[in-house]
């Protein structure tokens, strides 16, 4: 069994998005309930959330964006940059705690004290751009983590796998000129789904060309199409790139019961994807995986999806049944 870390903190519930918004604190409680009911909590090592040093955030985001975000929260504003990005007084602090907790999980994995970790954080991050909040995201959690790993631990090749049903525009843009961070995303086709980027011909820019890879999937499709795309696109690309660590933008909104997309992944389909990621990590990254929560809005399905996801991180495939 793997030594798997779990990052979760009650303070992640403090970011409130108001009525009619799908990105709610209940999501995390559903996830935790799934881990509890699966009797996984005793096997997990809790990772402590602590606020990130703002200099860490600045490795990705403009100082002006950070200041604007902080001021908007402290001044009692209800949104940042767009009505999608609802905020409350505690949102800035919560976002810092999310990044800080993930960096702590990364440290434990890199020190060899953990094999891998799942970070059940809010707010999510993969839509956040260098200078603006977008699509419920404020700080790009996975991007800050990739920079931290490279700058503090000297890893040369970081692989990011984003299976949220929406394309991680922010993460792609941050690394599209960077050949040391490979960004792979599989998502609903951008003609139909937010945010409208992530077409297969977006392959990176300049020296980063070839280190961005997108697999758009047409609405209505599910397990079979995902299986094809991952075998055709992700696995050969990562076998060539040989990442020294894999970061996962884990979004569970491609599930067939999730209202936020038209993709029909099954619960078993999600498990299959995670098993492929674990196999890649075993081959290239000494098993090092840090999985970071992005979307996933179906409160009825989140418990089982989280349970299977973490079960696979633990290396215990029986949990999935």
């Amino acid at each position: 069994m793997n030594r798997t870390g779990l990052l979760y903190d009650e303070r992640y519930l403090r970011h409130r998005t108001g009525e009619g918004h799908p990105e709610v604190p209940d999501r995390l409680q559903a996830i935790l309930k799934g881990l509890e009911d699966g009797n996984l909590l005793p096997r997990l090592t809790r990772v402590e959330a602590r606020p990130a040093d703002q200099r860490r955030i600045e490795t990705v985001h403009d100082v002006a964006h950070i200041r604007r975000f902080e001021e908007a929260c402290l001044m009692g504003k209800s949104e940042l940059d767009h009505p999608d990005n609802q905020i409350c007084y505690e949102t800035f602090e919560t976002a810092l705690l999310a990044v800080g907790g993930i960096l702590e999980a990364a440290r434990l994995v890199l020190e060899g004290r953990l094999d891998n970790a799942f970070c059940a954080v809010r707010p999510p991050g993969h839509h956040a751009e260098v200078d603006r909040a977008l699509g419920f995201c404020f700080f790009n959690n996975v991007a800050v983590t990739a920079r931290f790993i490279q700058q503090e631990w000297g890893l040369k090749r970081v692989g990011i796998i984003d299976f949220d049903v929406h394309h991680g525009n922010g993460t792609q843009h941050i690394f599209e000129r960077d050949h040391t961070v490979f960004y792979y995303s599989i998502h609903e086709h951008p003609t139909f789904a937010y945010p409208g980027t992530g077409r297969e011909f977006e392959r990176g820019l300049e020296t980063g060309y070839g280190y961005t890879l997108n697999s758009p999937v047409l609405p209505g499709y599910g397990d079979l199409e995902y299986r094809d795309a991952i075998q055709r696109d992700l696995i050969p690309a990562f076998d060539r790139f040989q990442p020294e660590i894999i970061l996962v933008s884990a979004g569970f909104d491609a599930h067939q019961d999730d209202d936020m997309s038209n993709i029909n992944l099954s619960t078993a389909g999600y498990s299959w994807i995670m098993e492929q990621i674990m196999a890649l990590a075993e081959r290239h990254a000494r098993g090092r995986v840090i999985s970071i929560l992005e979307g996933g809005y179906c409160l009825e399905r989140l418990p089982e999806l989280a349970r299977n996801h973490v079960g696979i991180l633990l290396g215990n495939h029986e949990i999935m049944k």
Partner: peptide, 10 residues
Amino acid sequence: LFTHNIVGIK
């Protein structure tokens, strides 16, 4: 629509 939040309107 210029939004990510489509659940309500659907």
